[in-house]
Amino acid sequence: MFEARLGQATILKKILDAIKDLLNEATFDCSDSGIQLQAMDNSHVSLVSLTLRSDGFDKFRCDRNLSMGMNLGSMAKILKCANNEDNVTMKAQDNADTVTIMFESANQEKVSDYEMKLMNLDQEHLGIPETDFSCVVRMPAMEFARICRDLAQFSESVVICCTKEGVKFSASGDVGTANIKLAQTGSVDKEEEAVIIEMQEPVTLTFACRYLNAFTKATPLSTQVQLSMCADVPLVVEYAIKDLGHIRYYLAPKIED
């Protein structure tokens, strides 16, 4: 028996919004420690890794490890039927071929349930090596989304250059060149407005704008985003999900042809 309840359906809606542009379907691996999802996008350029800890749920029970392959388009249709403040419960029997998603209004006067067929997805799990990153940048998630959106107008690629002075995002195309520099913030009143750079070595890497823009669909989940970079390895873009877990996107760099 698997059962997981969250106090607010809005969190699940935001999580789905953060992955459904990259993935058509995905396997949710459930165990007593929580729910994990790892999947590559269709073109095998990026990898999404979602961790939801069991202690972040209002109720969590998972008697046996369970892998639930879900069509994310179908799940989006079901979540559209929930009000943001509804309780949401996911339930499945061991070895079941369906999952039930139930919504309850705060006053318990409206209860709806949706049974969704599960899929057998033959998904490869990848081992992600530990990396000592050369640069780790923490910045407001809204600012990162704005930069990715703005620079995508000028080029398919963005160059991220991180030094101890700050982090620079550049795009160059037919229109010309765009550069956006962010310096590390001195003192800020609010932690969520800070730009913090931890640098071991300067690094310059090139990434495809369309993937960065897809990752920024996770912006509503978190006030801050963390970018971890190292020469010739994938960028890690991480959004914390408060009291519940995190979503990490790995993006392979563009390399010299």
């Binding site: 590559m40 095998h44 350029v45 990026s46 990898l47 490869e124 799990h125 990848l126 081992g127 992600i128 090596p129 690629s157 090139t206 495809a208 390895v233 994938p234 790995y250 993006l251 392979a252 760099p253 563009k254 390399i255 010299e256 042809d257």
Partner: peptide
């Protein structure tokens, strides 16, 4: 000129 690398060039299959 740059080309897009694949993610599997960096991570190993489990």
């Amino acid at each position: 000129k740059t080309k897009q690398a694949g993610i599997m060039n960096f991570f190993t299959k489990k």
